[in-house]
Design a protein around this nucleic acid. Sequence first.
DNA 1: ATGACCTAACTTTTAGGA
Length: 261
Amino acid sequence: MKIACFNVNSINARLLNVLDWLKNAQPGVVCLQELKCEEHKFPREEIEALGYNCLVHGQKSYNGVAILSKLPIEEERRALPLNEEDEQSRFLEAIISAPNGKAIRVICVYCPNGNPVDTPKFDYKLAWMARLIAHCKNLLELEEAFVVCGDWNIIPRPEDCHDPKAWENDALFRAESRAKWHELLNLGLTDSFMALDGRAHQYTFWDYQGGAWPRDLGIHIDTHLLSPQAADLLKSHKIWRNEREMPKASDHVPVSIELAL
DNA sequence: ATGACCTAACTTTTAGGA
């Protein structure tokens, strides 16, 4: 089964791109970020028509996440524990039932950007990541298969961008942000990109400005983290780079993994 | 030429993105 993540930068502005990609890629599960709409404005009928059950955690204008699943899906939570009062829709966790009687937990994340770094936005980013780390630590104790995927808003390595110098004081590349990333991985999670590829300059986001796409000046910030039980099932990892070329493309491209499930 | 984008919103300007 294919599990994908895709920051769509408005689901309604991106609907035709998303529907085309779903038909082409045929993922079983998709975690969407940056819906930029409330649940009642989510294009549920069009997506359900392709065979997906939709869990939607929307928000007016900003943020917003969803999980689409061809298999039965049940919501677990729509906020990180101890963060239920968060006004920003950035988290959605569900249990997906496989036909063989097995189940997999899927967590969709849209981690905070955190810029500018000398403001409360950066503190919010780091505190949000700390809560996610605590939650993943608890989930790992269950010794079950789970996948956390989405837009991390963290550039893990210098080679995950074109010019590390240009990013050195940005919230996405600051030492504090990358330390949180390492802390999360060091719990015992597997980054599917690093496990199966790991090459330099394999970007998942290119800014709309400055000809970033034609010049290939991107950053690698979208990937999947897997519990050991999920990592045992990991077959492949793919960045759908060609999607960035499409008319009206999002600034992110879809990323998918194949699990033996 | 030192700029060049995109989106939602009580739209004619702003906030946010990364």
